[in-house]
């Protein structure tokens, strides 16, 4: 299995922090800028303390063949703004117990380690595989990483019905995309769709968020993410369930030495 670099996990984060960030105060101007919208949308996904959920990953190829994976994830935000994420594989059976730990350092390279039960070894994961595909899915590690709103140039492109259309262009090199276009609801600032454009500015993938719900009555989460690759015809669906917030997770549960003891 290829769980490499920057990976991961954040599957959640993606879900969660999707755009990252710190809940900065956004100007109350009647007409918010692209950056204002991005920050507000990101704020909806952070500030949870700790969260955990189960997720089913459904991989479909162009012929309709389906493979599934069962994953658990946990994330924790500490007061200093650093976040920690853990994903643990429950299936396929040969990778059961494989765990990926990410220490997301704001403004720096993340630390990531992978524990492979078959080898009983913890390996550090390189941060230079951002464009690679995560466990054979249509998500790249980059798609699943939490991203910091400050790392992008934001532009408000248009308003479409009840939605803002905003564009993100990466400030730094290393991204597999020239730009992303996000559809954000005016009410509630929730991200409902992201379209990805490759370096030649061709539309390559679309990620749609659906089945919005408030599992704890407070934090809104999309329980279904659908990523469609327009070039290959393949798709990957993530279905989240059993979301729990603030169960008292601690930083020591996200240490490298803890990886071997995870079950």
């Amino acid at each position: 299995m290829k769980i490499r670099s920057k990976l991961v996990l954040y599957s959640i984060l993606a879900a969660t922090l999707t755009l990252a960030i710190a809940a900065e105060r956004v100007s109350r101007a009647a007409s918010p800028s692209g950056a204002d919208i991005a920050r507000k949308a990101a704020a909806q996904l952070s500030g949870y303390g700790d969260q955990q959920a189960s997720l089913k990953m459904i991989l479909k190829n162009a012929h309709g063949n389906v493979a599934t994976r069962a994953i658990r994830f946990r994330t924790l935000e500490d007061k200093g703004g650093q976040s920690y994420a853990l994903i643990i594989f429950d299936s396929p059976a040969d990778v059961k117990g494989t765990a990926l730990l990410t220490h997301d350092k704001r403004g720096g390279d993340d630390d990531q380690w992978l524990y492979l039960p078959a080898l009983r070894r913890v390996r550090r994961i390189s941060s230079s595989n951002r464009t690679g595909r995560f466990v054979g899915s249509e998500f790249s590690y980059e798609d699943l990483s939490g991203y910091d709103a400050a790392d992008y140039h934001w532009k408000r492109l248009a308003d479409r019905g009840g939605h803002y259309v905003i564009e993100a262009r990466p400030k730094r090199s290393g991204s597999g995309y020239s730009r992303r276009v996000l559809l954000v609801s005016k009410k509630g600032y929730r991200i409902e769709q992201i379209t990805f454009f490759d370096r030649k500015n061709a539309r390559v993938k679309t990620l749609s968020y659906s089945r919005f719900s408030r599992p704890d009555g407070k934090h809104e989460r999309a329980l279904r993410w659908t990523m469609v690759n327009h070039e290959s015809g393949k798709s990957t669906v993530l279905e989240f369930s059993n979301f729990r917030f603030n169960q008292g997770l601690t930083v020591s549960q996200f240490s490298k030495s803890r990886l071997r003891r995870l079950r």
């Binding site: 290829k2 490499r4 670099s5 390189s126 595989n129 464009t131 690679g132 595909r133 054979g136 597999g176």
Partner: peptide
């Protein structure tokens, strides 16, 4: 030395 995602193919 790792060659990640060779030519966008996902092969490492």
């Amino acid at each position: 030395y790792n060659f990640f995602d060779i030519a966008g193919s996902g092969v490492n």
